[in-house]
Nucleic acid binder design. Structure first.
Lengths: 158, 158
DNA sequence: ACACCTTCGTTCGAATTTGAACAACAGGAG
DNA sequence: CTCCTGTTGTTCAAATTCGAACGAAGGTGT
């Protein structure tokens, strides 16, 4: 009757979830971008690079690993790391075990910048997302989106 | 002791929710972008313009309204509408009640393009997001992210 | 009618992002 | 060792994004 050639459209709840996701995502990125830029002169992407590096052993990661964590293209990362290198927040090292490899490493200046930028950023994330949700909503969101991410990750690497 | 100058950092659950949101958002956008481009030659943004126009009375919206719905900058919308106008999917009309106003209207060709692109897009959204979540997770997500969006919206327009 | 502040959409330059193409290298099968 | 395939990071051109500045017009109060 209706589902031979017709796709399964989204019902009201499904559409609400999907729209909510898209809209919240866009609005949130917009706000965070502005705040970081004004507060520390960093883009969200640059901030995340610093975060991931500081969380890694030795405050350093290979370019490809970093690109995976950031969910960005390799060329995009090359650009941003170059920018961060110019401002002295990140340094490039060559990889001992692989001649092709390039390791991005957080500098002291980068660590300091992160220390200065993090509080304001976290406060805003809290204000706009975390504190708006209940504990239960947070748990469900973490679990659900974790599953979605996992699904997407394994889908990319067959 | 610890919270005089120190911000309230994110605990494990909060961090999981936040990271999940960021990662899922990036991965999802990436996938959808690729699929739409390959399948119909549209960017996600362009697709959303068509969707919002087709959902509006008269298949048309004023530029500012459209920009709000899309959560994008005015200049960004100007660019994209120009692109869509070039390919004949959208047309610009002048607003009867306001000389300054510009109305973007879906053309027959645009309607047809949407009809052709929608099934694949919806199917992918379903596969990567909707069908990965349970009914309860979907409901919580819709409600929670709805609240977040509302919070962000009213925060922008004081 | 007048000044004043806001809104509308566009233009402009700068910054960023992406995928494809590339050269150099790694790793394994034979 | 030698070929072959996959990886790594960069470069390049093209596309997109944004904010600020702009001219033009709306709307309000006086």
């Amino acid at each position: 009757m209706s589902s031979l050639n017709e796709p399964r459209w989204l019902d009201q709840d499904e559409m609400a979830a999907w729209r909510g996701f898209v809209v919240a995502s866009n609005l949130l990125n917009r706000r965070l971008e502005r705040q970081l830029k004004e507060d520390s002169g960093l883009s969200h992407q640059q901030y995340e690079i610093l975060v991931h590096l500081s969380a890694a052993p030795g405050d350093s990661l290979r370019m490809t690993e970093l690109a995976d964590k950031l969910v960005t293209s390799k060329s995009g990362l090359t650009y941003q790391v170059t920018q961060l290198e110019r401002t002295g927040l990140v340094a490039r090292r060559s990889c001992p075990s692989d001649v092709r490899g390039v390791i991005a490493e957080l500098t002291d200046q980068g660590r300091e910048m992160l220390r200065q930028a993090a509080p304001g950023h976290v406060a805003l994330v809290r204000e706009l997302l975390i504190d708006v949700l209940t504990r239960e909503q947070l748990a469900v969101l973490a679990e659900g989106l974790g599953a979605v991410s996992a699904r997407l990750r394994q889908d990319e690497t067959p």
